[in-house]
Design a protein around this nucleic acid. Structure first.
Lengths: 282, 282
DNA sequence: GGCGGCGATACCGGCCGGGTATCGCCCCTG
DNA sequence: CAGGGGCGATACCCGGCCGGTATCGCCGCC
């Protein structure tokens, strides 16, 4: 199977429409039809059900969609990482570290400093991601290493080392009655009608239903809290540099957050290994 | 990048010789040279150093070799799993479970029984592997799920659930002086000049240096022990059905062995999920 | 200096991927 | 019920690229 065929199939499987898929791929529709038909013939399996109103995936098609996405990510990763490795020594970014924007900034700074002090350290770029974006970025090669936060991020499929575990705090508007308490419990916060928890975007960009404002980044969040329109539960270090007008109160029964450093399991490169060593030595 | 190019590059990188690589690929040498040159041109990176005596990998080439192997495994896995999914319902093997030959046979039997009793269970094939072979088999799609044994097998890159933890025992020839002991320590066994630990093949098929006979499977091992030419340290359940002429003694300070069920992280198919559920419910 | 090994280059032929035109089918609608 | 439009499949053609053979250029070694 060629990657071209996989790309074609993914396009059709996502659009469920040959015409739109062809358009997205920048080719005409007939070659696309032929390519899919050829794929099905070679696999000896129907991948798509051509019904009278629209196209649907067969069981085998659903399997191929999942597997093809993973395979294409791996191919893309190969290309990107090779390009990056080729620049090592000459141009700059020999290693890309992905981290969630607005999180672990202190840890991140210490890590970069510690690694830079090592002999043989290469230039490290930091790629700041939206929540939950680190894993895909690591899978498709835009990054080589990532800082993830359990239990929010799924670390499945990567090698990891734990770096740090911390409790969580509630961030409240400064004047809020609960802000004077020494500690809180989850149940006291999740049910507040005046301060709903915000909704974060899902990986596909849409928002879950429910009350609470939609937020896309940290700045929006702090602003909303300061306005008294929301509250949030975040790891303790999120309290550092707390903006004007916000208070933090520990939430004793919130699950602890573990920051881990993660990398693709097959990429035991010396550069990655060095960064991991620096991280665990912190 | 097309998978053809990746296959070509891997062949050259492994052979470090264009002629032999071309032969292995079943093509002539000139198209291969051109394909690699094209790849290097498009990546803007030298992958191979053509020296006067032979070809060597550049840094970027080494990165691409690792990444390309992973990517090709993923593509192969996509193809195999799709073919298998297409047969589900009609022909038989809809799910393939990899397990180490000669290990966990009791657990395996219970697992297969428990899963078969579930509603909606599909046909499961068991693929018996040599030691350490389960992970590659899972990566390239020959299997969908595997039973692995920590700390021997590397579970990096997979989702896992722990099933069972057990201590290890030493297997000795029946008449051996240590065979009468109630328990042993690692240090008492590893140094025995008359009963060396056997050497298992590495993933590439070669054997590490050292004393001790070379063994490739469980049968050879038991035979060698019965002959008084070796001893072994194996998980407790390996004692079940102990062959004539062998004794087992617990090794109290050997690391415990955990049997886990593992599957590729992206393949949350209902069939795999059902098997995992059956396994954890044991 | 000649020879042999090896990768690169030159050149050619056939296949296949991609394009345009068109068909066949089904659904929807007036 | 007839007509039209949307959509995927088919027919057919062209060009590029993949793969083959022949040959060159370079280097090391008898």
């Amino acid at each position: 199977m060629e990657t071209r065929e996989l790309r074609y199939f993914v396009a059709v499987a996502e659009e469920l429409h040959f015409g739109r898929a062809a358009q997205r791929l920048g080719i005409a529709q007939p070659p696309l039809s032929r390519a899919i038909a050829g794929l099905e013939r070679r696999l000896g399996a129907a991948l798509l059900e051509r019904g009278s109103r629209g196209v649907t995936l067969t069981g085998a098609g659903a399997v191929l969609l999942r597997e093809a996405r993973a395979a294409l990510d791996a191919v893309e990763a190969a290309e990107r990482r090779t390009r990056r490795a080729a620049l090592a020594g000459t141009g700059r970014p020999a290693l890309v570290l992905a981290a969630k924007a607005g999180a672990s900034s202190e840890l991140l700074a210490k890590l970069l400093d510690a690694y830079a002090a090592e002999p043989g350290a290469v230039a490290v770029d930091v790629l700041l991601c939206g929540p939950g974006e680190q894993a895909p970025v690591l899978r498709d090669g835009r990054a080589d290493v990532a800082l993830l936060h359990r239990p929010f991020d799924d670390t499945a499929g990567f090698d990891t080392e734990e770096l740090h575990t911390e409790g969580q705090v509630a961030i409240l508007p400064a004047g809020h009655p609960l802000g004077t308490r020494a500690e809180l419990r989850l149940a006291e916060i999740t049910g507040l009608p005046d301060l709903p928890l915000p909704r974060w975007p899902r990986p596909d960009g849409t928002f879950p239903d429910g009350p609470g404002p939609q937020v896309r980044d940290h700045t929006q969040l702090t602003q909303l809290i300061a306005l008294g329109r929301a509250c949030a539960i975040v790891p303790q270090t999120g309290r550092a540099g707390l903006a004007e007008g916000l208070t933090a109160v520990p939430v004793v029964d919130a699950p602890p957050v573990t920051t881990v450093i993660a990398w693709p399991p097959h990429s035991r490169s010396t550069a990655v290994a060095g960064l991991v060593r620096a991280a665990t030595a912190l």
